[in-house]
Design a protein around this nucleic acid. Structure first.
Length: 305
DNA sequence: AAGATGGCCTGAAAGC
DNA sequence: TGCTTTCAGGCCATCT
């Protein structure tokens, strides 16, 4: 389940494999991902171009090309990149292949471990929740996919307690839903939303507008700390990435509440509660994360009937 | 209009 | 043992 930390880890793993390499050819499975793969457009702008950068925005991976085009990838739930050489048998659920050219003057020849000239980067996505898109060079405005995205949670100039307070003001939506809204802040998925709220001691159903400034400050700090720690932990998988899809290190991250329904809270020992909120599994400690008053009242009313 | 809900998709695991 | 059901979740369309 790639959230911001894993996407960043993938970016770091991908960068040395494609930087300054020329894309010779692009092929696709033909199956649609979250939306159809724009193969003709990918070929038009991608083939023959050289990769000048690999960046990340939210959970999107961006391949910058020397013709100013942009290849945009989203891993969805199960998307992964893996390097291969031409002889490697295709794997089930390979949906896009970037065939890379050797470079005469790039200093290291771009040879894979096997020494074969043409390497490939394959995008494999079993559940097809991923996405591939192209932004043509002429498009001067930000790609539609990236327009309207909120700030990066690790950007301490943009994602501040003041900013979060402004976005929470007068909102009755539960804070967990708001943290997972990428118009408010990007990269925080279900797992990290649970973890951040536990660390900040805030009940996931608390209406966003009712949270004190002090708690919002804690939420900001917790998001930053947990995501940073997760990237560091995932960093150990970069070596794995070069061999295969490598997800192993991701789970080394210590998760305090996510997936621990019925287990004791690591802080107070009380049983972690699992409930479904906005259609997502939500975990919290009922002692460390006090429920908002409104919820308690509703419960009393219901049980009173 | 803000907030809630369902669909997309596959495979692992649980349930019967 | 073998089938069916459930669940995972980012994103978006659709509904209230």
């Amino acid at each position: 389940m790639p959230e911001l930390p894993e996407v960043e880890v993938v970016r770091r793993g991908l960068e040395p494999l494609v930087l300054q390499r020329q894309i010779a050819r692009i092929s696709a499975s033909g199956l649609p991902l979250r939306r159809p793969v724009p193969l003709a457009e990918l070929r038009r702008w991608g083939e023959g171009a050289r990769v000048t950068g690999v960046s990340r925005r939210a959970k999107y991976l961006l391949l910058h090309l020397d013709n100013s085009a942009l290849l945009i990838f989203h891993l969805g739930m199960t998307g992964k990149f893996y390097p291969a050489v031409a002889d490697d048998p295709p794997r089930k659920h390979d949906h896009l292949v970037l065939h890379l050219n050797d470079h005469a003057n790039d200093g290291h020849g771009g040879r894979g471990a096997s020494g074969q000239k043409v390497a490939q980067i394959r995008f494999n996505d079993c559940r097809r929740f991923g996405l591939v898109a192209v932004c043509a060079p002429a498009e001067t405005t930000a790609p539609a996919l990236l327009a309207g995205l909120g700030p990066e949670p690790l950007d301490d100039k943009a994602f501040t307690p003041a900013y979060l307070a402004q976005r929470c003001a007068h909102r009755r939506t539960p804070i967990k839903n708001l943290l997972m809204d990428n118009r408010v802040v990007v990269g925080i998925g279900n797992i990290y939303a649970n973890e951040v709220l536990f660390a900040a001691g805030v009940h996931p159903q608390t209406p966003a507008g009712e949270i004190s400034r002090a708690r919002l400050k804690k939420i900001c700090a917790a998001a930053r700390e947990i995501l940073t720690r997760a990237i560091a932990a995932g960093g150990t998988t970069i070596a794995d990435f070069a061999n295969a899809a490598g997800e192993s290190g991701y789970f080394q991250v210590q998760l305090a509440v996510y997936g621990r329904g019925g287990q004791p809270c690591p802080r107070c020992g009380r049983e972690i509660v699992r409930q479904v909120q906005a259609g997502r599994a939500t975990y919290f400690c009922p002692r460390c994360q006090r429920p908002p008053k409104v919820i308690s009242k509703n419960k009393e009313q219901k049980s009173g009937k």
